[in-house]
């Protein structure tokens, strides 16, 4: 029982990370038809900025996390304005550009701080464990789950209650018609990139806490699982991404533990292949 609880909490924590990456990825694709292969790089930017804040600048964890998130948000906005926006009429070049950023950022991080993992200073307040049904669950799992839940609620409120949320929901359905109502959707694009970048960078700062270190490849690794989540949840669907993130995190943890280590990761990627082959239509799905 204790093992099951620990695996479940860890799986949910991982699922929370996946959700933070996948929600932005899903909204960006749903609204803009942009498959942002640089999204993992935004996570890495957030992770390293948080690490820099905590380990180099001596900020406490929460301040470092806020700094990392803000830094990643700015990076996402710059990415949209400088690289994505000029290429809207050239989708193929746009994908290549995001691939380029996805490769360049880890290389840059490696160039500056080296290829090895850098230990992330664990804050005292989050170092302990919580006892549930005999299991000692590290506190940081709950930080991840709580943060993802907050982001989920905030995103749902944004989509349901605000004018830009309305524009995003409508734009996921039919972007051309939104412009035909006199709306300049490019502002919504930049905003969605900012939101997606913020969530991914927050995920980066939390991943640093969860894994206890940062390394240049982290973003790209997590991006693969986020893709599985996006495809499972339906492009453009925040609620779908949340449900799929929980499923993927749990399947991965339990399969890794009860079968062979690494088989869970493989199972998830195999699941992606099956989904893409079986439901190619879902790639252009609707906002739920």
């Amino acid at each position: 029982m204790a093992t099951v609880v620990l695996l479940a909490c860890t799986g949910l924590g991982l699922g929370a990370l996946y959700f933070l990456i996948a929600s932005g990825l899903s909204l960006i694709f749903g609204l803009m038809d942009v498959l942002n292969l640089a999204h993992g790089a935004l996570l890495s930017v957030g992770a390293y900025a948080t690490w820099w804040g905590a380990a180099q600048a001596g900020l406490n964890y929460w301040l470092a996390l806020a700094f990392g998130t803000a830094f990643g948000t700015v990076a996402a906005v710059v990415l949209e304005l400088v690289l994505i926006r000029p290429l809207y009429t050239r989708p193929r070049d746009q994908i290549l550009a995001t691939v380029g950023v996805g490769l360049a950022v880890p290389a840059l991080l490696m160039g500056i701080w080296g290829g090895d993992a850098r230990p992330f200073p664990q804050p005292e307040s989050l170092a302990g464990t919580v006892h549930i049904a005999g299991a000692a669950v590290p506190v940081n799992r709950f930080v991840l789950i709580g943060a993802a839940a907050l982001v989920l609620v905030a995103l749902r409120l944004f989509l349901a209650r605000t004018r830009y949320g309305l524009i995003v929901r409508a734009g996921v359905e039919d972007r051309a018609m939104v412009t035909a109502l006199g709306v300049d959707v490019r502002k919504a694009f930049t905003l969605v990139f900012a939101i997606g970048g913020a969530a991914a960078a927050l995920g980066g700062g939390l991943a640093a806490l969860y894994f206890g270190s940062v390394n240049p490849g982290q973003g790209a690794n997590l991006l693969i699982f986020a893709f599985v989540v996006v495809v499972m949840g339906g492009m453009g669907s925040v609620a779908g991404a949340a449900a799929a993130a929980v499923a993927v995190g749990l399947v991965q943890q339990f399969a890794n533990y009860y079968t062979a280590d690494g088989l869970g990761d493989l199972a998830v990627v195999a699941l992606l292949a099956v989904l893409v082959l079986a439901r190619p239509r879902e790639l252009t799905g609707r906002l739920a």
Partner: peptide, 8 residues
Amino acid sequence: LPTHAVVR
């Protein structure tokens, strides 16, 4: 003009 500007 782009669509939104035409509409406006």
